[in-house]
Design a protein around this nucleic acid. Structure first.
Lengths: 220, 220
DNA sequence: GTCTATAAACAGATAGAC
DNA sequence: GTCTATCTGTTTATAGAC
């Protein structure tokens, strides 16, 4: 919306949001002090009140940043051109691609980790920040996946069955982030590198193929 | 282990653990003050230090309580008598039963909610409490499910594929607790009552059937 | 806009009366 | 064992110098 002002003030704002997102995601909102945030952002404590009105305002700014970031990624991966009607095979291909993208983003450990953790904490204890993220990211993404699912199965895109089925697919991926620590221990893995993410991704894609195949069976 | 002493001291201990578990699960460890815990347990602040050495000791006591509780439930649902070798059909039946039990325990909202939330927070930010829960609950449960999965598919019970597959089944269930808030909004539900849990459970069981069917196909 | 100093509230831990 | 009073450190928010 803004013409991207890269003033010194804007740099401070960005540094604060970035530091806050990382610390909120890592140690939780309550577990993070504004002093730590200011120190990590190389800013002073007073700047938080000045720019965001307080700690709570900084949380809202983090939520806005997340919505912005994910929408940007999503619009790259799914350009408006691809929004037209699809045939069954294309829908299945896009569902598989969505699983791959989601797994890469959610499970792999780079900068995305702090975003996922932040969102998970909001889901566990909703604040106004969750409203922004739900409306801006969650609902549109789930709705789109339901559309693909409907195309692949012939079901109603907004039926209860479709919506739940899509959630079970998302859950398979998300769990490897939630239960990351337990999974690593049980698998004997040290981290979620490329190899581990591939193993998980192909398992979920196999499951998807099996579930779609079963839904087709009764009609043959 | 103990002959269950129900002294006044033991009552205080239990009240403190119960209150702490609920508050830690709801507001997080850092977000909960020892004063709130003492007030909720109708005990005084000093009793926490007296009985548990401090806030950290209370967290450990919560973890021990969780392990105890879940092991008790698990041993009821799966008595030692049923531990013998199983045929394929019996293994599949037990996998379905496990999904039902897990969904009922994890998704439905009663007292179990605070346990699940506590564990999820530990998974997100592991402490010594997670070690207890992993060793006492998580690892044995996953290992058992892997055994059932192996019996149902013919795979190796400790292979990477088996372990990941079991995680994807668990993930489908757990997600409805993690993403509870988002799911409720998207589904237009007001709560997870019996009807909603049934809808989720049957979706996951359908998925299980489809996945097992697909694994059988190549061998026919 | 940035930074420092300080205020006012609150945290966990502890000493000691009962 | 229980409970109160208090110590020490830390929190967020704010006022004001620069």
């Amino acid at each position: 919306m803004d013409p991207v002002p890269v003033t010194s003030a804007e740099q401070t704002r960005r540094a604060l949001v970035h530091a806050a997102l990382r610390l909120f995601g890592t140690k939780g909102f309550d577990g993070t002090s504004t002093r730590d945030i200011a120190a990590a952002a190389k800013a002073n404590i007073g700047s938080i009140a000045y720019h965001f009105g307080g700690k709570e305002g900084l949380r809202a700014a983090c939520a806005a940043f997340i919505v912005e970031t994910i929408q940007s990624i999503a619009s790259q991966a799914m350009p408006p051109a691809a929004r037209g009607p699809l045939d069954r095979a294309a829908a299945i291909a896009q569902l598989n691609a969505a699983i791959e993208r989601m797994a890469a983003f959610v499970i792999a450990q780079p900068a995305a980790g702090e975003i996922v953790q932040f969102v998970l904490r909001e889901l566990a204890h909703p604040t106004a920040a969750l409203d922004m993220i739900y409306d801006g990211v969650f609902e549109p993404m789930h709705r789109r996946l339901c559309g693909l699912w409907a195309e692949a199965t012939g079901d109603d895109p907004e039926s209860e069955d479709t919506k739940i089925a899509v959630f079970t697919m998302i859950g398979q991926v998300i769990y490897f982030r939630i239960g990351r620590e337990a999974v690593l221990r049980r698998m004997g893995w040290k981290e979620f590198g490329a190899q581990e993410v591939t193993a998980v991704t192909s398992a979920v894609k196999d499951n998807l193929a099996a579930i779609l195949a079963a839904r087709k069976e009764p009609g043959r």
